[in-house]
Design a protein around this nucleic acid. Structure first.
Lengths: 205, 205, 205, 205
DNA sequence: TCATAAGCGAGACGGTACGTCGTGTCTTACG
DNA sequence: CGTAAGACACGACGTACCGTCTCGCTTATGA
């Protein structure tokens, strides 16, 4: 759990923020992710990944020093997403787009997220990586949407609250993690219409 | 992972909702919980628990048929809480009381929750038990508070939404699970004042 | 390669010179010896021994801390032999009996002996064990035979030479180790009649 | 283990009996021999040889198709010796010269010999090579010495026995292999005077 | 003088065995 | 009889080594 970016990320590295895997590495991570989703963290064996990918254990461990590193890398690889903030011209539509995306994604990767969360208890590096790759990305996106809405006059600038920007995605992720009652599109709609929007527009009245 | 309540819950069992451990069992669970919090699920070994508690592995497995059962039992034992819905006479105060309790509790047991969540991926029984012992309890409490508030006229009865009753606890738990930015009392206050209350009172205006 | 006698040799240990394996341990060593003779040291895998003996690797390693220890133990177990000096009443017959036995034994265990010899380069303990279990035993036997012959007057007491008592067995072992020209009964006969006896009786004439 | 003489022995090859290594190859074998003597066969890694010699593994394997081939080549390289039969004019002196040489040589290379012996269990080629390079050479030398002695009348021609010509070197090698009681010059002297010479001269009396 | 090829270092790779450790089952001996 | 102690089968982890391979770099030769 010491390094997340293997040395083999030798491709220029001009964008320091981007993880660059070779084609082979991406393939290994894809196999890992698939087995991870179907079997879960504990049932996943490095041997199985290696065998399925026609690789050897040494190859796996050369890149990711432990099973936990491998799983984290696969998770990050699997969650590299659209990355572009929606811009529908309407705050409500933007929020629903974000919410729907988060709900779908978190439902799909619930098992993996649980595994990664669990590993976070042990590794400061993993916490930092998670923070950097996962949280900050959402934060940026949400702030962009809110700033746009404020510019349109849909909400007041004072509605942008450092504590609640992730209520929408956070709650949706929570619902996926708890595994019963995973979030639906209807959940997103109701959350946006009856919780988030009222909260954001509260001060405008 | 087949049974969660050991046979040794022989004490009358007149209150079906309550888990009754013998003194020895409670001691074993306490040791389990401590090691769980300090090392996390994977690093926890049943051997270590047995050794520390001067018990034998057979004793552990006689009561909890697997490590996951043991950890779940320890988690439930450790999270047995007030259980009574607050009744301060004010919805805001009730919500803040609940939120503060959830925040404190989820901060303390974040590591354990991560471990239990992870195990939920594998075990339907664990999911059911979690649902029963953890979610339903909060649901009941929250509904009681909301019903009381509706009776007081603080909110409309139509504000009670099956999708959003756990936005407050869910989001707080999410914040604890993510480990950075754990929820503070200020988080709770702002969430109540600027998100939950406006949402609940939205239809009253 | 640190210990040769497992702790489980708890049987009184009144005869400090004897290795006492439990029945199960003897079974494991028997399987080891068989696979060793058929495949050789390098081709032998601890996994194969465990599988064949319906044991687990942990069981193997609990008793013998390394593959080399296991092989040594199997070798010693396999070479525990007649141990009684022949006493035919004739020096020539005694020598031929010893030589024939050594020749047969060393032919059979040539592969194992090569493996054990190779390991001796690394382990002082193995050297000591080998010395104790293998060399000294032959020495004792040979001295007994020679003393008896001297008592009968077949040879002079001055013929008993500290340097040459193992010429007979040593040369026979050498022939087995070199794998071509393994010693035959004829080899033994000729060696006794034309080399050892003349040397021993040299001073009598 | 398929070929022992690499193609790179391109230097004329007019003397089919001689192994001709380039300077670089001899250097590699020297490093191999050193590591072999200090660590033994199992502890020797081709990687280590390559690293120490600033070579690459491909270079090693281009010349010697396997580790066993490499070790054998190093052993043969290291044991290329005087090769000329002594001719002191006295059988006793000749035998002592041979014995002393064998004793010194086998003491020095005991570890390597154990390794090579061990490999002989697996490889017919190695057995053949060993036989050709090692045994036959001694045989020739010994026969030459014995024939000379017979010509001088020191021994009868009937004393030249196909079974015992290598008792002297064989026993000395055995003593070295067993690692305790390595042969000394005194061992050689006594063996010659009290065993080999009496045996050879037995029929003359 | 420059280009093309052949050899070399470096080291990644697939495969396989080693030795360790944890789970869950079982037996033994003690109180 | 329940319990502490701990051996046991199973199987995954992470390491190390073998023998194969590819990649650049150098060097030595041919136009």
């Amino acid at each position: 759990m010491e390094r997340v970016v293997p040395d083999s990320a030798k491709s220029g590295a001009s964008e320091p923020e981007q993880y660059c895997w070779t084609e082979r590495e991406a393939e290994l991570l894809t196999v890992t992710l698939r087995l991870l989703q179907s079997h879960g963290y504990d049932r996943l064996t490095v041997d199985a990944v290696a065998t399925e990918a026609k690789a050897s254990k040494a190859t796996m461990y050369r890149r990711w020093p432990s099973k936990a590193d491998l799983v984290l890398a696969a998770f990050i690889e699997g969650t590299r997403e659209s990355a572009v903030a929606p811009n529908t011209g309407s705050l409500r539509e933007d929020l629903i787009a974000i919410g729907t995306s988060v709900a779908a994604h978190s439902r799909e990767h619930a098992s993996t997220m649980r595994a990664v969360l669990n590993e976070m208890s042990h590794s400061a590096d993993l916490r930092a990586a998670m923070q950097d790759k996962f949280v900050r990305h959402r934060h940026t996106m949400m702030e962009e949407v809110l700033a746009t809405a404020a510019a349109r006059g849909e909400i007041g600038t004072d509605a942008i609250n450092p504590e609640i920007w992730d209520v929408l995605p956070g709650y949706l992720v929570f619902r996926s993690l708890m595994s019963d009652r995973p979030p639906t599109d209807e959940t997103v709609r109701m959350l946006v219409d009856e919780v988030v929007l009222p909260a954001l527009q509260r001060t405008r009245t």
